[in-house]
């Protein structure tokens, strides 16, 4: 296979990359960390959370690093006062949109949202909490879905579709009223498509999806299966 190499600069550093790679991948290979939430290696990037937005010289708009491919001579800025402000506000959006009570959450201390808040130095929230009334679906014999903690990253939707091939999960509604559903908005426990494989639970970045029988801070997510499975599927197709 013939791979073309492109050169570009990220935060003033000249780096080489293979054509077809995303800014996020190349930055990661060069030790430059860009915050992400919806992205997960092994699943198709969708550029939905917008936390990974970067400045690219010559582009009026900010671009999401997870979905933008590198090009020859590209000049990327991943960190600036402006970007930090945007990322923080987006993070505040995620916290205020649902009901995130870390103190009593199964994922406390093991949560990607919480960890990102720590990394980005979010010590208070400026936009008002929305306190939506949301349900808990505990009908599945092994797993629980707590909509209060869902940030709609759709990792569960993608892993179920792309890797497991069951496509049990989907998103219903629109805008601020969107929510993830199983089958055609049937209780998870009555889903006929769900294989109970648990992949959705383990890719979920927060405590929205968890295994039953776990108390506070006990739900560690295991993702080792994902790169392996996605490579295997990629080879087959």
């Amino acid at each position: 296979m013939n791979v073309r190499i492109v050169t570009l600069s990220i935060d003033g550093r000249d780096v080489g990359a293979r054509e077809g790679q995303t800014i996020l991948e190349v930055a990661g290979e060069n030790g430059i960390e860009i915050p992400t939430m919806c992205n997960l290696t092994g699943l198709k990037p969708i550029g939905a959370c917008r936390l990974c937005v970067v400045e690219v010289a010559g582009s009026r708009k900010l671009l999401s690093a997870c979905t933008t491919g590198v090009t020859e001579g590209m000049q990327v800025t991943t960190d600036s006062e402006r970007l930090r402000n945007y990322r923080r506000t987006i993070l505040e959006f995620l916290f205020t949109e649902g009901n995130h009570t870390c103190a009593v959450c199964v994922s406390n201390g093991k949560c990607e949202l919480q960890e990102l808040a720590r990394k980005l130095g979010m010590n208070h929230v400026d936009v008002p909490y929305r306190y939506p009334r949301r349900d808990v679906d505990a009908t599945h014999p092994r797993f629980v879905l707590d909509h209060n903690r869902c940030i709609l990253c759709t990792r569960c939707v993608r892993v179920c579709d792309e890797i497991e091939g069951a496509h049990t999960w989907d998103v219903m509604g629109r805008g601020i009223d969107s929510k993830v559903i199983t089958d055609l908005h049937q209780p998870w426990g009555s889903s006929t498509s769900c294989t109970s494989c648990g992949k959705c639970v383990h890719v979920c970045p927060t405590g929205a999806l968890f295994e039953k029988g776990h108390s506070v801070a006990e739900m560690a997510k295991r993702r080792q299966f994902l790169p392996y499975l996605s490579t295997m599927r990629g080879a087959k197709e």
Partner: peptide, 14 residues
């Protein structure tokens, strides 16, 4: 009300 019973010790401890 509405919370999984498993959360109750931590929740009520607060």
């Amino acid at each position: 009300e509405g919370r999984p019973f498993y959360e109750m010790p931590a929740l009520t401890a607060r």
